[in-house]
Design a protein around this nucleic acid. Structure first.
Lengths: 198, 198
DNA sequence: CCTACCGATCGGTAGG
DNA sequence: CCTACCGATCGGTAGG
């Protein structure tokens, strides 16, 4: 007969700590959040956290790398589909918005707090993000407007512009908005492909 | 015969402190930067900073509000020009990139660290940013593709998408890139207005 | 997961 | 702008 302290977790204390940390990190930042804040949110005393995590940075590293990993899965899904380049781009955008909509706070942490990782983790996070950017650059290079100009430096800027729009979504997305994640994805995909000239 | 300790400032010690803080805040975040870090970067002892500033938050408040103010000046310039809506949008984008290019680190702080202001300052910063977003929404609503649909909720998303692209630029902009700020502004303006269908 | 605690460091100040 | 210092709080640990 196991005693369950709070209403929550059936299994994993570590997950509870990570979820509370996402909320706190997204609001107060990594360095603005103390282990005492996290402990209080979880409902244990500060020292007790160390039974489930190695240290403060362990928490951030987990959130960031698992977060970017969600985006990298998009890559596999899109590559696997043998769609036309135009459809691939649209598909990738829609999936990206889905990932953001599933946990906007988590993605806010992923996009803003990775800087505070120290060295083995930081470089790993940067590499993962670069892999994701590469996927978008590749998809863009396949669009008919860029055909035959694979090394065009404009593609890089185009890529930053598209990713900028997408990476900014956690900043304003609300589940209470008038559109579903998929509708949002369609609108943003329209915007990216057609611009304002419609 | 005034003694000048370092090579720098002819006048303003406060400016020196603010500039050093921009660099440190953009790299380590507000909460990851200590008064001792700032003092060391400026070349004085920690306690000496308080002769020029009221406290740590005073520094951030100055950087953030003066930074957003630079963007708000764009508004006046664009409104003053009696250009066509399409030209207004292009003009605003070009000016936005100019502001970012002038000090990308400062704008990184403006976009990411305003959250850590406490209450009178934080609300002021949010209001200023909303005023700027409103300008873009207004300009977008005037574009011919939105004519007669001023309340279209799509305009809001379109606005977030455009501002997302623009607000992300401090993340990747480098003065060593192949394009000048104005060329970059033109490319991004093309991307926003025409999308990828060219 | 708690008790009890550590050394280090924080933002800031008094008085010059 | 320096000397000297403060109380508070930090991330983390030993031992149970």
């Amino acid at each position: 007969m196991a005693k369950i302290k709070k209403s929550e977790q059936l299994g994993n204390a570590r997950e509870t700590i990570l979820d509370a940390s996402v909320r706190l990190f997204s609001e107060h930042g990594y360095n603005g959040t103390t282990m005492r804040d996290i402990a209080e949110a979880v409902g244990v005393l500060p020292g007790s956290l160390y039974a489930h995590i190695k240290g403060k940075e362990d928490i951030l590293a987990d959130i960031v790398t698992s977060g970017i990993a969600e985006f990298l899965e998009i890559q596999e899904t899109v590559e696997a589909s043998r769609a036309k380049p135009e459809e691939k781009l649209r598909h990738a955008i829609r999936l990206h918005i889905q990932v953001v909509a599933k946990s906007p706070e988590r993605m806010l942490v992923v996009f803003h707090q990775w800087r505070f990782l120290s060295e083995p983790h930081r470089t790993e996070a940067v590499k993962m993000r670069q892999r994701y950017a590469k996927m978008f650059a590749d998809i863009l290079a396949q669009q008919k407007c860029f055909e035959g100009r694979l090394k065009d430096p404009q593609i890089k800027i185009q890529c930053f512009t598209v990713l900028g729009s997408l990476n900014w979504t956690p900043e304003w997305y609300s589940p209470d908005g008038p559109y579903s994640p998929d509708e949002l994805g369609e609108i943003i995909a329209d915007s990216v492909t057609q611009g304002l000239d419609f």
